[in-house]
Design a protein around this nucleic acid. Structure first.
Length: 748
DNA sequence: GGTGATCGTGCGTAGA
């Protein structure tokens, strides 16, 4: 992988910047036994001591970014940290805030700077103490900051009156999300309350397009954000992509002698390919520390259970533990601690939970089972291995269907394997997807408007527009849109208006704001609590059919349902010999980037076999290329096969989705399978429809959305007027210009 | 005959 030049020279222990730190801070650095400051820590000193600039500090995991921000910030506060909260640190996780609290407390103790943490698990007495005598540094989540605005609206200007910096950790985790939009709004509202700007400091792992991150940190003035980069880079990468063939269901059943109706999945009854992948994981990971990313909670459970049974069969203590968001905090923390302690070999099978944030130390290797969700997340996952100068090791396991005479074209093209190769190629060139942008975020605008009203007890429509839209984070929303938006909220009783025109909370709005669930910008579902022997294992969505006697796999083990207490939403479990992998409700839609699909075409058209492919993966790629050539897909993008016509726009999901909707609007029946649109009918019909679309020119995106079944995907979307919702949906998931360009190219 | 179909994050107050 390539390396970035560092923006400052970390050599020279006693640099001039270091000498500008407060003597007590310098003393703390010496007592840590540090020989010199890291590059990023050097680079941050001048801009943060100055105290007027927005800054982004970006460096790899475990490079001391927190200290980079707080050595200079604490230098400013060392003589006097009182009067009000003087610095805010916003973190995305409670666990991360707890970690940072320990680290910062050590630094601040000798400087007389109080450090407070504030999140849902912090006692009310601690919170009351801070409100009574505010001072020092406050570590807080976006949701708790939201709660402060709503519950302590009138006290905020005093609480934050002497605020000098706001630090945002894991900045990249916020960009492009509802939660990030909420955070931008909260930062803006802090400044409106104080009637001055407060310098912002973003901490992040290396970001691709720094200008996007800068614009997120300071909307409208991203170009004035000071960027401090320090990427050690250059770590050696050992890479392997292993291919597996999935047997057709019929062949599978005959081979295993498995009864179709059998509830149990004993080890030898497991589908051949999962078993093969598991066997290789077991053989290579056993005895060391690793992370296995399995993409979904169901797959995490499947592989954790499989690998545990392999340990049992080999008469070894179990080394494999699951880690995902539905497991109880207790089980997760046990797994994290076991991995970090390094006293015995432990590998965690996980979802995105261990992609960032929690420090589990460096691991020997990363395994990725199935197509990575994106190049960006693959890169993030890779960062967990190969620290301390050792190579980063990544093994990718990919299953492709065994072909039969009736296999559909996408199966024959091995799109999963080719997409994975394309993503690895892009990873090796150091490219990765930029975060999503362009959404209107009407759902979060609902939340922020109601919160603004709660903060002030009422607000004029014009003031709200100025605060949130005109100069705020919802700048894409025009005055006309805002008026329609307000009218919609009024009709749904979220708002009411007093005789002088002041906006107040309506009946429904009042109820919404007064429930604690309002502080989060994202939605959550009701869940059962799973209990075994008095111990909470975790939760499951309440719409899961769980009856007495149901068997399931959870927490990497097998259980049977003993009792269901509907009132308390508790399910009691007992150990069982068999189990079924639980289904979790899928929660969103992904999106493959244009660049990945373009690279896929390059991979199909090429003839070299990347060295990181194992023999079976080489065979699979060779087969895929043969299919590509047999269908002459290098020369044409529309082919007829049986009753279907396949269209290859070689573009990302937004373009594919837009083209599918456009063809549907002309009465065609369309299915999308990864990069391919499959249309029922004759090739001439499809070409005719595409020609007509091109001739008409691109429509307004929202006119394409009438075939979309459910556009209300975000928390408060149900309150947003239909036409505005359509605009938001189109901005997020469609690409009309790109689709029309693709249509023209397809017809050439 | 129909496949398989992201994940993750968060929370105040009153009353016992």
């Amino acid at each position: 992988m390539s390396s970035h030049p560092s923006s400052s020279d970390p050599s020279g222990a006693a640099s001039s910047a270091f000498h500008r730190l407060h003597p007590q801070v310098r003393r703390w650095v010496w007592t840590q036994g540090w020989k010199q400051l890291r590059g990023i820590q050097e680079a941050a000193i001048d801009p943060l001591l100055e105290g007027t600039r927005d800054v982004i500090l970006s460096a790899s995991t475990a490079s001391g970014k927190t200290e980079a921000a707080f050595l200079p910030i604490c230098s400013r506060l060392a003589e006097d940290a009182g009067g009000s909260v003087r610095a805010i640190y916003v973190g995305p996780l409670k666990a991360l805030i707890n970690d940072q609290f320990e680290r910062l407390d050590g630094l601040c103790e000798g400087l007389g700077i109080p450090v407070h943490r504030w999140h849902g698990d912090v006692s009310q007495s601690h919170k009351a103490r801070l409100l009574k005598s505010p001072a020092g540094v406050l570590l807080i989540t976006p949701e708790s900051l939201e709660a402060l605005f709503i519950r302590q609206g009138s006290a905020l200007s005093g609480l934050f009156s002497g605020l000098e910096h706001i630090v945002i950790d894991e900045l990249h985790a916020f960009i492009g999300t509802e939660r990030g939009c909420q955070l931008q709004s909260l930062l803006h509202r802090v400044e409106l309350t104080l009637r001055r700007t407060v310098p912002r400091v973003g901490l992040s792992a290396t970001l691709g397009d720094m200008s996007l991150a800068a614009e997120f940190l300071r909307p409208g003035a991203g170009s004035r954000v000071r960027l401090c980069n320090s990427d050690a880079g250059g770590a050696e990468l050992l890479l392997q992509l292993r291919g597996y063939r999935k047997r057709a269901p019929e062949a599978r059943r005959l081979a295993s002698g498995e009864d179709e109706t059998a509830d149990a999945t004993p080890l030898d009854g497991l589908p051949e390919d999962e078993h093969d992948v598991g066997a290789h994981l077991f053989k290579t990971l056993r005895g060391t520390h690793n992370l296995v990313f399995a993409n979904s909670r169901a797959n995490v459970e499947l592989y954790a259970d499989l690998l545990r049974r392999m340990c049992e069969d080999a008469r070894l203590p179990n080394e494999f533990f699951p880690h995902h968001g539905n497991l109880s905090k207790e089980l997760r923390e046990e797994a994290e601690a076991a991995l970090k302690a390094k006293q015995r070999p432990v590998s965690l099978v996980c979802t995105t939970t261990l992609e960032m944030g929690i420090d589990v130390g460096a691991v020997q290797s990363i395994a990725q089972v199935g197509v990575p969700p994106s190049v960006a997340s693959l890169r993030q996952r890779l960062g967990r291995s190969g620290r301390k100068g050792g190579p980063a090791v990544l093994r990718l396991y990919l299953q492709e269907a065994e072909l039969t005479s009736t296999s559909p074209l996408p199966d024959q093209l091995r799109v999963r394997l080719v997409q994975s190769v394309a993503m690895l190629e892009l990873l090796l060139t150091n490219w990765f997807e930029p975060p999503a942008s362009g959404a209107f975020h009407f759902s979060t605008l609902v939340q922020q408007l109601l919160s603004l009203i709660a903060q002030h007890g009422g607000v004029k429509a014009g003031e709200a527009f100025l605060a949130l839209c005109h100069q705020g984070p919802f700048a894409k929303v025009s005055r006309e849109d805002f008026v329609r938006f307000l009218r919609g909220l009024g009709e749904r009783e979220l708002l009411s208006q007093s005789s002088d025109g002041t906006l107040l909370l309506g009946r429904v709005g009042e109820r919404l704001v007064n429930h604690y669930g309002f502080y989060a910008a994202f939605a959550s579902v009701e869940e059962f609590r799973l209990v075994a022997g008095g111990r909470t294992l975790g939760t499951m969505p309440i719409d899961q059919p769980l009856f007495v006697g149901t068997s399931l796999i959870f927490g990497g083990r097998r259980w049977r349902v003993l009792a269901v207490q509907g009132d308390e939403k508790v399910v009691e479990l007992e150990p069982a010999p068999a189990g079924r992998v639980p289904m979790f409700e899928p929660t969103g839609v992904g999106g493959v980037h244009d660049r990945v699909r373009e690279q896929m075409r390059v991979v199909y058209a090429g003839d070299g076999l990347p060295r990181y492919l194992d023999a079976r993966a080489q065979d699979l790629l060779t087969e895929a290329r043969a299919t590509f050539q047999r269908w002459k897909l290098g020369e044409r993008s529309i082919v007829a096969s049986g009753q279907e016509v396949h269209v290859f726009p070689w573009a990302g999901d937004a373009v594919v989705h837009t083209l599918a909707l456009a063809l549907q609007s002309r009465g065609l029946s369309v299915e999308t399978l990864g990069p391919v649109l499959s249309v029922e009918g004759q090739q001439s019909d499809v070409e005719g429809a595409l020609r007509a679309l091109v001739a008409e020119g691109p429509p307004r995106a929202e006119s394409l959305t009438r075939h979309v079944v459910n556009m209300a995907l975000e928390k408060h979307d149900g309150f947003v007027p239909e036409d505005l919702l359509a605009r938001d949906y189109a901005a997020r998931y469609l690409d009309v210009q790109g689709a029309w360009r693709a249509a023209q190219q397809v017809l050439q």
